[in-house]
Simulated scan of single mutants.
Amino acid sequence: MSANQDADGQLPLVNLITERYGELTGPKRKVADFIVRDPESVIFMSSADVAQAVGCSQPTVSRFASEMGFSGFTEFLTTLRDQVKQRLEPINRMARITSGSTDAAKAFYESLRADQAILQGLSDRVQLKMVERAVELILRAGRVGVAGVRNSQTAAYGMNFLLNQLTGKSALISDSHKDLEELSRLGSEDLLVTISFSRYSKRIMEMTRVAKESGVPVLGITDSPTSPLSRFADVLLCVDCRGPMFQNSMVGALSIVNGLMTALVAAMSEEQREHSQRHMKKSDQISDKLENYLWTFESHK
Rank of each mutant, 00 (worst) to 15 (best):
A7L: 12
P12K: 01
E19C: 02
E19F: 06
V31M: 04
I35N: 00
P39S: 07
V42E: 01
S46E: 09
A53I: 01
S57T: 08
P59W: 00
R63M: 09
F64G: 04
S66D: 13
G72F: 14
F73D: 02
E75I: 02
T78A: 15
L80C: 15
R81T: 15
R81N: 09
V84P: 01
R87Y: 08
L88G: 07
E89G: 01
M94L: 12
A95L: 11
D103G: 07
A104H: 12
S111P: 01
S111Y: 10
R113I: 10
Q120T: 00
V126C: 01
M130A: 15
M130Y: 11
A134T: 05
R140H: 05
G142A: 06
V144N: 05
V144A: 02
A147Q: 14
S152E: 12
Y157Q: 02
G158M: 06
M159C: 13
L162I: 03
Q165W: 07
S170M: 15
K178M: 07
E181Y: 04
D190K: 06
L191M: 12
I195Y: 03
Y200I: 00
I204T: 13
E206Y: 07
M207P: 04
R209D: 05
A211Y: 02
S214I: 09
V218T: 02
I221Y: 02
T226E: 02
V239K: 00
G243W: 07
Q247G: 08
S249K: 13
A253T: 04
A253K: 06
N258C: 12
L260H: 12
T262E: 13
V265F: 05
A266F: 04
Q277V: 14
Q285E: 12
I286C: 09
Y293D: 15
